[in-house]
Design a protein around this nucleic acid. Sequence first.
DNA 1: ACCTGAACACCGTTCAAGT
DNA 2: ACCTGAACACCGTTCAAGT
Lengths: 188, 188
Amino acid sequence: MPAKRPPIPLSRERIIDAALEIADAQGLRRLTMRRLGDALQVEAMAIYHHVPGGKEALLDALAQHVTTVSVDPAGLPAWRDLAGAWCRAGRAALLAHPGVLALAMTKPPRGSAAAAIREQTQQLSDAGLADAPAAVRALRSYVFGSVAVELQQTGWADPRTEHVSGDPEGDAAFERGLSALLTGLAGS
Amino acid sequence: MPAKRPPIPLSRERIIDAALEIADAQGLRRLTMRRLGDALQVEAMAIYHHVPGGKEALLDALAQHVTTVSVDPAGLPAWRDLAGAWCRAGRAALLAHPGVLALAMTKPPRGSAAAAIREQTQQLSDAGLADAPAAVRALRSYVFGSVAVELQQTGWADPRTEHVSGDPEGDAAFERGLSALLTGLAGS
DNA sequence: ACCTGAACACCGTTCAAGT
DNA sequence: ACCTGAACACCGTTCAAGT
């Protein structure tokens, strides 16, 4: 007789992964505690046991997930290359989950996301950049904004549209603007 | 005897204004058809008569409202000054209604908002800028992103926090990054 | 033409109860 | 410890009905 396979136990990580999947596929407005429960084969109320703050805390966690990046500065002695690497990493993390971009831009950075900003600032400062905090702020602004504009352009927003993750036109536009900004930061 | 003053008739404009007020004061998640009806002294269902697409169309209209700007190019012959004026106007329009920034960044530009982008491109092209479409895209990215970062920083997100609209630190950071980007665009 | 009331299918969250 | 079921106060939207 077929053994009853025990259900995979619920965990914060599984919940976040499932939530990202729903948001990316159907949009943030359709990310619902009840739908999330369905996706995890569990009643919606079980989620509260693993995510104490309820839905608001879950959304915070999603924002944190797509804004936490890290860059290894080894082999990138020039601040310009280092800054470029941080920007590309940040962009990739945001593009990976277009459904939660609005959260990433709206929620203030907390925990690991805030730590990543501090690390970026420290690395750029160490690499010899004069006003690293101002530069990081300008770079973060550009990364956030360019991803938003790119997703607007490719007609995401409607989750019905198919999104091509490796859009070469978006890549090129991003690099052009990034290059301009880095050049400008060098001169200031 | 006191005359029964006739209620101000409902209109699309009054609905949008009231919706902006609620979103700014209480956050987008609390902008509800029923609450909106209350604010307008009307049953929620009356709104559907003036905004055909329902809530989704209302949110589109809010996004359009805060992304529709215009600049008079007279007296700004240099493309750099002209571009700066567009960016400052765009930033001011977004900062005026922090509650709907997430919509502005997420919804693709339509109608008057799309027209404004075309006008900006045309003006910059006329002013002698080489690749105006690429520049406009980079500038829009920076404006969106810097407003998002600024609102994150000032602790908006929680609508409980008091937001200072003329934040001088935000102004300075914006101008520094803008200047860097414009310098970089000139060289490319 | 414009608004209302009742109704329907959903939400987030609580709390006592099950195992 | 972990999950469920029922319940409560809300949502968006429809539709027939009122004026």
